[in-house]
Simulated scan of single mutants.
Amino acid sequence: MARIYLSPPHVTGRETELVGEAIASNWIAPLGPQVDAFEAELSAVVGVEHAVALSSGTAALHLALVVLGIGPGDEVACSGFTFAASANAITYTGATPFFVDADESTWTLDSQLLDRAITERRDAGARVRAVVAVDLYGQCCDYEVLAEVCARHDVVLVQDAAESLGATYRGAPSGGQGALAAFSFNGNKIITTSGGGMLVSPSRDLVEHARKLSTQAREPVAHYEHTEVGFNYRMSNILAAVGRAQLESLPERVASRRRIRDRYRELLDGATGLTFMPEAPYGTTNAWLTCVVVDPAAFGIDREAVRLALEAQDIEARPLWKPMHLQPIFAGHRVFGGDVSARLFEQGLCLPSGSSLTDADQDRVVATLLAARG
């Protein structure tokens, strides 16, 4: 039987046509008409006016912090339940991250704990400048509450929307909830450019500064002139063509993943000891990955036994994110809370969720999962 992957790229065929246009135009290096069009089209989809296409979501986060002036001596609050890139981008600037636990009811950044964390760090003399709030597995954070906390403490809110393209928050598309937002188009995301990202903001000045920095901070003169340190972070015209083709089918991809998530719920209904990631009432998730929590006492085996049983049948599943405070590289950093994300990591599992997953493949996943109990 063919291997079932967690979240493989879903190619429609339209990519070939647009990549062919890019090659025919001889724009095969970074920048070009496909990049310009991809920026405009994604801006329209997410409802944020300004965008710059970049080499990765990590690059987008890094530049977001750089253009905000975050640097050595600063501290940045960061969702603790996330992929390492969220925190790595902070360290690239020379600033220091501290981590805030997830809310049990949404798995996203706990706003009350964030309020306490910023207060405590400020009372200790820390210069807290920003918050990186991470949308998790396709679900947005509760940004109205987070924005109020950030405003009260006079810190900037940055949205890590790497996993939430196509989701909504209070009826608005994900990506417009912070001063800047970063998207990822990595190979496993809901749309992909094989590798790539996008930084969006309502602020033209911030995005144009990021655009300049992303091309080695060249000054607009005939020769190579540099007045600040830049980065080689721009997306290629060919990859932007792939992204444009993928973006055209975003609504269908979201609908497919939500249907897969709902079908897992139906097929696993009544399986004692299995619970699903909750969907927050303030928005709709894009269901990027369907996530379950395995209670070993009730289900009969633990999460790792389930994962290994799936792997034995050539089915890829993955533990939930290992929280940052448990990562060796960030072991010495301050954490507020941590028990919620630690438990979710210990018991949580991401199931195959790609938008091209067939019913037959999903049936195979479910049958293997249930049979793992013996």
Rank of each mutant, 00 (worst) to 15 (best):
V200T: 09
T275A: 14
E39A: 13
V19S: 01
Q112R: 08
S353A: 14
A95K: 11
E252C: 02
A297R: 07
G175L: 00
P319F: 00
L165Q: 11
N232H: 14
T119D: 13
T358W: 07
G166E: 03
R253V: 02
P328S: 00
R263M: 04
E144A: 15
A240G: 10
L349E: 01
E279V: 15
L18E: 04
E15T: 04
V335N: 06
G32L: 03
I23D: 02
A130H: 04
M198R: 06
R152K: 12
L18A: 08
S194N: 06
P278A: 10
E75A: 12
L370P: 02
R343S: 15
D36C: 01
V35H: 02
Y282E: 00
E316F: 04
E49L: 05
I301G: 00
R253Q: 08
D74Y: 04
D36A: 10
W107V: 03
E279K: 10
E279F: 15
G348D: 04
E208F: 12
E219H: 11
I329H: 04
A371Y: 06
A84W: 10
P202R: 14
R152E: 10
V131K: 01
F336T: 02
G80R: 07
S105M: 09
S184F: 02
E39I: 05
G13S: 09
E279I: 13
T91Y: 01
G230Y: 13
S56A: 03
T368Q: 00
G273E: 03
A147L: 11
G71R: 06
V128E: 01
V45W: 07
E311H: 13
G283Y: 02
V340A: 14
Y233C: 08
A182H: 02
A179S: 11
A271R: 15
V67N: 02
E279D: 15
Q313Y: 03
S194E: 12
G57R: 01
H153W: 15
P323Y: 03
E163A: 06
V306R: 03
I28M: 11
D115V: 01
T368S: 12
V45R: 14
V35R: 00
F299A: 00
I118C: 11
W321E: 10
Y169W: 14
G196H: 07
L239N: 15
A22S: 08
D359A: 08
A371P: 06
Y224A: 06
T91V: 14
L308R: 15
M324E: 12
G197D: 03
L68Y: 01
L274M: 12
A245K: 10
A51Y: 01
V335F: 04
A22T: 05
R265G: 09
V100K: 06
L114S: 09
E311F: 15
V293W: 11
G230H: 14
R303T: 08
A37L: 09
A22K: 02
F231I: 03
T227R: 13
V134H: 11
Q216T: 12
G332I: 00
C350F: 11
Y137K: 10
Y282V: 01
A271S: 15
R261K: 05
D74T: 12
E144I: 12
V134I: 13
F38M: 12
H10I: 10
L247D: 07
D101V: 00
G337I: 08
E163Q: 07
P8A: 11
P278F: 14
L65F: 10
S341C: 09
A372F: 05
E346T: 13
T96D: 07
A95Y: 09
R122W: 04
L326M: 10
Y169C: 00
G243A: 09
E252R: 07
M277R: 15
